[in-house]
Design a protein around this nucleic acid. Structure first.
Length: 845
DNA sequence: CGAAGCTGCGCG
DNA sequence: AAAGCGCGCAGCTTCG
C-alpha cells in the first residue's frame, strides 16, 4: 500500500486521506495501538524512544530500527549508525538527536508500510516539535517521503528544502541511507579521511554540508496557496480599462529591478502558421499581472490586440531591470520568432533554469519532477508545488478557460521572480555568480542557432527515403530467399519478417528469450549462414533510415528548416545537447554518411564548417600547464609518433612483421594512430598502465613501464590529475578553468573528463557567441565544430571575419597554447572538402 | 496505455 | 577498430 504511493511519488502524505479504507486521522489518533508491528513478537525493543538530547539543533531521521538497534534499544547504533557517525563532526556528536520514521523494527528489515508509518507519525512529529531542530538530516527515501512527500533520493540528496513538521518549520537535508552506503562500499574506511566508494564520498560531503550550513542558514519559509495566489491579477481584454491597465502596469514593471516574465502558448515551438502566444504575465514586487494575447477567449478588438503586443514588445526591449524567466530558451525562441530576433539580446534576461543548473548540474534523474523544473525548484526553495495549484491541461491551454490560464500564468511569472532572487543568493554564497553569467550568454546564442535552423532539401530526403526502402526491400528479399526463411514459412505458416526481432528469435529457436540483447546474440548465432549478411545489412539500413531520414518527413517546419532544440542545461559537463531531432550525431565516418546529403546550401550559398583541431589535448595543456605538452603544441611536435617509437623499442613484437615494416609510411601511420588512441589519449584521460597494455595488446609490464615513462615526461599532467582527485575529496566537486562544477558522486575518470569537456565547450561556445553578435550565426554546433551557410560570392570576407574571432579566444587561460581551426566547404553537408588549416600563431602573417 | 528501463549505435 | 567521457534516439520489454 505504502509502496504504491512511494514508487509513483504522486501524492504528498498530506494528500493521502485513507489507507486500506481507514481514515489517516484515525490512524494518527490510534497511534501505536493500531500498529501492525505490535504483532511482531520477536522484537526486543518495540516503540523505541529517540536517542540524544531532548532539545537538539540537528535531528537525524532514519527509516526504521534494524536488528542491532532492536537488540540495543536505541536508534542508529548498528552498522548504519557507525557509517553515519564517522561523518558527524566531533564537536557535534553528543548534540544530535536520532529517531526513526517507524520506531519498531519491521520483520526481515522490510520497508515499513504506510499504515505503520502513519501510526507512528504523531509520536515522531511530537518529538521533532519538542526538539525544535533547525536541521533535519533525513536518511534515505522513506524519511524523505515522510517529511516532504517527495521521492527520488538520488536527485534530492545534496540539496536542502524547507519543511513543516507539525507546528515546527526547519530545513531538511536529504542524504542517501547509510545502509546503501554500506552496500556500495569497496572497502571499510579506517578514518574520516577515507571513503569506501564514490557514493560514500558524496554522502560524507552531504553530511558535512548540513552541519556547516548552520551558521548561515536562513529562516525556512514555506509558501501557502494563499501566498502564491496573492497579488496576482489579470485582464482578459473584455473590460473597458483593460488596455490601459496593461499599459500602466508594464510601464511600472519596466522600471522595476526584477520582473518575472512568462508566456503561455498553444504549441511547443513557434514555427507553425497557427502557433500563437495565448497569454503573457509579468510580475514585480507586490504585483503580478497576466494578460490575454491570442487566447481564443481573449476579448481584444484587433486594434487593441496589436496594441497589447506592441506594449509587451516595448516592455521586453526597454525594461531597465532583470527579466526573470524559467527556461529562457523557450521564451526567447517564441519572442524571437513572433516579436523579432532583436529581443533575444535586449536589456537583461535571466534564466532561473540556468541558475539551477549552475547550482547543481544534475538533471533527468528518473522520478518526476525533473530537478530543473519550476515544480521541483518551487518545492526546493519555497516548500510549495507551484504546478499543483492549478489543474490545467497544459497541452491544450487554448481550450482551457482563459481566467484559469491567466491565474496560472501570473503565478508562474511571480515564481520566476522569487526564484531568481532565491537562487541568486545561493550563487553569491557559493561563489558561482560569475559562472552563471558565463552560462547565461549561451542562451540567446543557442536560441538564435536553433531559430536559424538546419537547411534541409526535402526532395533529397524523399529520394533517400525511397532509396532506403528499395535497399531494405532488396535485403529482405535476400533473406527470404534463404532456406532458413523458407523453413520459417513452413513452420509458422507466415512469411518471415526481418523487421521483427521476434521473428528472428523464433527463426533461431530463441522464442523464449525475451530481451533485446538476445537479438544481437541471435544474429551472431547465424554464423556464416547466408541469411546473416542481408539481415545485418537490413538492420543497419532500417536504423539509419528511421533515425536520420524519416524524422525529417515528420519534423520539417514550414520554413524548410529543421529546428532542433539546443539545450545548455542537459549535460553534466557544460556541453550542449540537441534533440528533436539530435543533429549532433549524424553519420560522418560510418557507412550511412549519405544522410548528410539532406543538408543543402540554398542557391548562391555554401556550407562552411570549422573544426577545432586537437581541442581536448589542448584543454589538458591549458588545465595542467605541463611544460612538455605546452611546448609540443606550440612546436606542432608529433607526440604520437614519439610514443609509437617508444612502444616499438620496448616491445618490437607489437608491430606486425617487426619494426622493419615501419619503413612503409602507411604502416607507420597506422601504428602512430594506434599509439595516439591506445596510449597517449587514454593516459591524458586518466587510464592506468595496465589498461593501456590491454589496448595495445602488449604485456602488462610493458604497459606499466610505458606509464612510468609517460608520467616522468608529463609530470605536470599527472600532478594536475591528482589535484583534481584531491579537489573532489576536499570539496565534493570537480571544476576546471571555467569554474563549472560537477558534483559527487563522481567516478575517477569522470573527474578528469569533466573539466576537459567544460573547457572545450566554453571555448567553442564563446567563439560562437561572439560570431553570433556580428551576424555570423552558426546553424550547428557539434562540440568542436561550428557550421554556417554563407553567400558563396563573399567567401573570403566571411571566412576571414570568422577566423579572426575563432583564433582569438577570450579566455586568457586558453592562450597558453595556439588555437587551430580546420575549415571545410561544400554545397551540401555530404560533399565537404578540406579548405585549409589555420593556426592562431601564424594566421595573418 | 503510458512511463520507465535496457541495449546498441551514431556523433564529439 | 580499439580510449575515456559526454549525449539522443530507435526498438524493445516490463510495470503499474
Amino acid at each position: 500500500m505504502f509502496n504504491l504511493h512511494y514508487k509513483r511519488g504522486t501524492s504528498a502524505p498530506a494528500e493521502i486521506r485513507t489507507l486500506g479504507g481507514v481514515d489517516v486521522s484515525t490512524l494518527h489518533a490510534a497511534g501505536c495501538s493500531a500498529c501492525p508491528l505490535n504483532y511482531v513478537l520477536s522484537n526486543y525493543h518495540p516503540h523505541m524512544v529517540p536517542r540524544g538530547p531532548s532539545n537538539a539543533e540537528v535531528y537525524v531521521l532514519a527509516e526504521a530500527p534494524g536488528q542491532r538497534e532492536d537488540e540495543r534499544g536505541a536508534p542508529l547504533v548498528g552498522p548504519s549508525g557507525q557509517c553515519l557517525d564517522l561523518r558527524v563532526p566531533d564537536e557535534w556528536r553528543s548534540r544530535v538527536r536520532y529517531n526513526n520514521v517507524v520506531r519498531t523494527r519491521p520483520p526481515d528489515n522490510r520497508e515499513p508500510s504506510d499504515v505503520e508509518i502513519e501510526c507512528c507519525r504523531p509520536s515522531v512529529v511530537g518529538d521533532i516539535e519538542a526538539a525544535c531542530p533547525r536541521v533535519i538530516i533525513g536518511l534515505g527515501n522513506v524519511s524523505l517521503y515522510w517529511a516532504t512527500g517527495q521521492v527520488g533520493i538520488a536527485k534530492w540528496r545534496g540539496r536542502r528544502l524547507p519543511v513543516r513538521v507539525g507546528r515546527h518549520a526547519c530545513w531538511y537535508f536529504p542524504v542517501v541511507h547509510p545502509s546503501a552506503i554500506l552496500r556500495s562500499r569497496k572497502f571499510a574506511p579506517r578514518n574520516a579521511s577515507e571513503y569506501g566508494s564514490d557514493d560514500e564520498l558524496a554522502f560524507a560531503h552531504d553530511i558535512r554540508r548540513a552541519f556547516s550550513s548552520l551558521p548561515t542558514l536562513p529562516e525556512p519559509v514555506i509558501h501557502t496557496r494563499e501566498f502564491a495566489e496573492s497579488d496576482v491579477s489579470w485582464v482578459t481584454g473584455h473590460g473597458d480599462g483593460d488596455l490601459s491597465r496593461v499599459s500602466s502596469f508594464l510601464e511600472r514593471a519596466a522600471a522595476a529591478p526584477v520582473a518575472g516574465v512568462d508566456l503561455e502558448t498553444n504549441a511547443k515551438r513557434p514555427y507553425p502558421e497557427d502557433s500563437r502566444i495565448l497569454t503573457a504575465a509579468v510580475s514585480v514586487r507586490g504585483e503580478a499581472l497576466a494578460f490575454a494575447v491570442d487566447h481564443r477567449e481573449a476579448g481584444w478588438s484587433p486594434a487593441d490586440r496589436n496594441a497589447v503586443v506592441e506594449l509587451f514588445y516595448e516592455f521586453l526591449t526597454r525594461a531597465r531591470g532583470r527579466k526573470a524567466v524559467h527556461n529562457l530558451a523557450f521564451e526567447l525562441e517564441w519572442a524571437a520568432v513572433h516579436l523579432g530576433r532583436d529581443i533575444t539580446r535586449a536589456g537583461r534576461w535571466d534564466c532561473t533554469m540556468s541558475q539551477a543548473y549552475i547550482l547543481d548540474e544534475r538533471n533527468r534523474m528518473g522520478h518526476r519532477p525533473d530537478p530543473l523544473s519550476l515544480e521541483f525548484l518551487g518545492i526546493q526553495y519555497f516548500g510549495i508545488n507551484v504546478k499543483s495549484l492549478s489543474r490545467l491541461n497544459r497541452d491544450a491551454l487554448d481550450s482551457e478557460p482563459l481566467t484559469d490560464v491567466l491565474r496560472y500564468n501570473g503565478i508562474d511569472a511571480k515564481y520566476h521572480r522569487l526564484l531568481l532572487s532565491a537562487q541568486q543568493r545561493r550563487l553569491d554564497d557559493e561563489g558561482l555568480a560569475a559562472v552563471y553569467e558565463e552560462h547565461l550568454r549561451r542562451v540567446p546564442t543557442m536560441v538564435l542557432t536553433q531559430v536559424q535552423g538546419v537547411p534541409i532539401d526535402l526532395s533529397v530526403t524523399r529520394e533517400l527515403d525511397a532509396t532506403y526502402h528499395a535497399e531494405m526491400a532488396e535485403q529482405a528479399r535476400l533473406v527470404q530467399d534463404t532456406d532458413l526463411a523458407r523453413q520459417f514459412q513452413g513452420r509458422f505458416g507466415v512469411p518471415f519478417s526481418p523487421t521483427s526481432n521476434q521473428d528472428v528469435r523464433r527463426l533461431l529457436g530463441l522464442a523464449g528469450v525475451d530481451s533485446v540483447a538476445a537479438d544481437e546474440a541471435a544474429v551472431a548465432q547465424l554464423g556464416d549462414n547466408p541469411a546473416r549478411e542481408p539481415l545485418t545489412r537490413f538492420k543497419k539500413l532500417a536504423k539509419a533510415h528511421s533515425t536520420y531520414v524519416a524524422p525529417q518527413l515528420r519534423r520539417m517546419w514550414p520554413d524548410g528548416r529543421l529546428h532542433s532544440t539546443i539545450s545548455t542545461t542537459n549535460t553534466r559537463t557544460w556541453r550542449t545537447a540537441a534533440e528533436d531531432p539530435n543533429t549532433q550525431n549524424w553519420p560522418k565516418r560510418s557507412g550511412e554518411k549519405r544522410v548528410r546529403r539532406q543538408v543543402v546550401a540554398l542557391p548562391g550559398y555554401e556550407i562552411v564548417s570549422f573544426d577545432w583541431g586537437q581541442i581536448q589535448a589542448r584543454n589538458v595543456a591549458m588545465e595542467s600547464l605541463d611544460p612538455v605538452l605546452v611546448r609540443a603544441l606550440w612546436d606542432d611536435y608529433d607526440i604520437h609518433l614519439e610514443w609509437m617509437q617508444r612502444i616499438v623499442q620496448l616491445h618490437p613484437a607489437w608491430v606486425e612483421g617487426g619494426p622493419r615494416a615501419l619503413a612503409d609510411p602507411a604502416v607507420t601511420k597506422k601504428y602512430r594512430d594506434r599509439a595516439k588512441n591506445e596510449l597517449v589519449f587514454p593516459f591524458l584521460f586518466g587510464a592506468e598502465g595496465e589498461t593501456v597494455a590491454g589496448y595495445l595488446g602488449v604485456p602488462k609490464r610493458v604497459g606499466i613501464q610505458l606509464s612510468e615513462e609517460f608520467w616522468d615526461k608529463f609530470r605536470g599532467v599527472r600532478r594536475w590529475q591528482e589535484s583534481k582527485y584531491e579537489q573532489v575529496r576536499e570539496l565534493g566537486y570537480v571544476s576546471g578553468l571555467t569554474e563549472f562544477r560537477r558534483r559527487a558522486p563522481i567516478a575517477k575518470n569522470e573527474i578528469i573528463n569533466a573539466p576537459i569537456q567544460a573547457d572545450e565547450s566554453a571555448i567553442v561556445c564563446d567563439a560562437m557567441d561572439r560570431l553570433s553578435r556580428v551576424d555570423l550565426q552558426a546553424f550547428l554546433e557539434v562540440h568542436d565544430d561550428l557550421t554556417f551557410m554563407w553567400p558563396r560570392r563573399r567567401h573570403d570576407e566571411y571566412v576571414s571575419r570568422a577566423l579572426a574571432i575563432m583564433l582569438s579566444p577570450t579566455y586568457e587561460w586558453a592562450r597558453v597554447v595556439p588555437t587551430v581551426v580546420e575549415m571545410s566547404v561544400g554545397s551540401d553537408w555530404y560533399s565537404m572538402r578540406d579548405a585549409g588549416k589555420f593556426r592562431s600563431n601564424t594566421w595573418g602573417q
